[in-house]
Design a protein around this nucleic acid. Structure first.
Length: 206
DNA sequence: GATAGGATGCTCT
DNA sequence: GAGCATCCTATCC
């Protein structure tokens, strides 16, 4: 099986589809919650991606994204939401994969307590901000090493990986720049995948 | 079911 | 001061 360190050391675009099906786990005093990742987006640091946080260079907020691959990059968005990314590429590349949605596979009770307004379990982590809420991830977890055993937040690749025939790709969601790039990846048929605002967006096979 | 609009505060120009 | 990698509620089919 592919090693996580090896996967994330490649470009975000290469790593993103390989992170589908992986498990993201957060251990806290409240309990451990884990999700199986069903939807991701790649953000490139090669200068062509105007939507990437690193597009205009190093800032205090995005410095983690310029760090080593396999690090958790958490940022605050819209004044109320946290979003989680996995840093990819060599140090200084400024690439990351946004974790957009997942299925809660461990700690269901804890996730429900954190998101009491949710009626259906498939909505617990459907959307990037919902996913961090269900896992209990906040800015305090920014910079966590996802590869090191013993970290509060850890990432484990799917074994076996999901078949390529189940992976779909299409335009990213919720951005205004470089919105035409098909750098969103998700698992076909998963009810936990967040839907595109408009148009059915069935996506294309990988 | 689909869509529109408000909430809310950090980040960078 | 403008712009967000969003979510939730209300309202209308």
């Amino acid at each position: 099986m592919a090693e996580l360190a090896e996967v994330v050391s490649g470009s975000a675009l290469d790593a993103a589809p390989q992170l589908l099906g992986a498990r993201l786990r957060h251990r806290t005093t409240q309990g451990t919650v884990a999700v199986r990742i069903t939807e991701v987006e790649a953000y490139s640091g090669d200068g062509t991606d105007a939507a990437a946080h690193t597009h205009r260079g190093l800032t205090p907020r995005n410095q983690v994204m310029f760090g080593p691959a396999g690090t958790l990059y958490v940022y605050f968005s819209y004044g109320m939401h946290w979003c989680a990314n996995v840093v990819c590429g060599p140090p200084g590349a400024g690439e990351a994969v946004l974790i957009r949605a997942g299925e809660v596979v461990q700690g269901l009770e804890t996730a429900r307590v954190r998101r009491p307004a949710v009626r259906r379990d498939v909505d617990l982590a459907r959307g990037p901000a919902r996913l961090t809420q269900a896992l209990g991830i906040t800015g305090a977890d920014n910079g966590t090493d996802l590869i090191r055993a013993g970290s509060a937040v850890s990432l484990t690749l799917a074994e076996p990986p999901p078949p390529a025939s189940d992976v779909r790709t299409g335009p990213r969601v919720g951005i205004s720049k470089a919105a035409d790039l098909p750098w969103r990846f998700w698992l076909d048929g998963e009810p936990t995948v967040s839907r595109a605002p408009r148009r059915a967006a069935r996506g294309t096979a990988l």
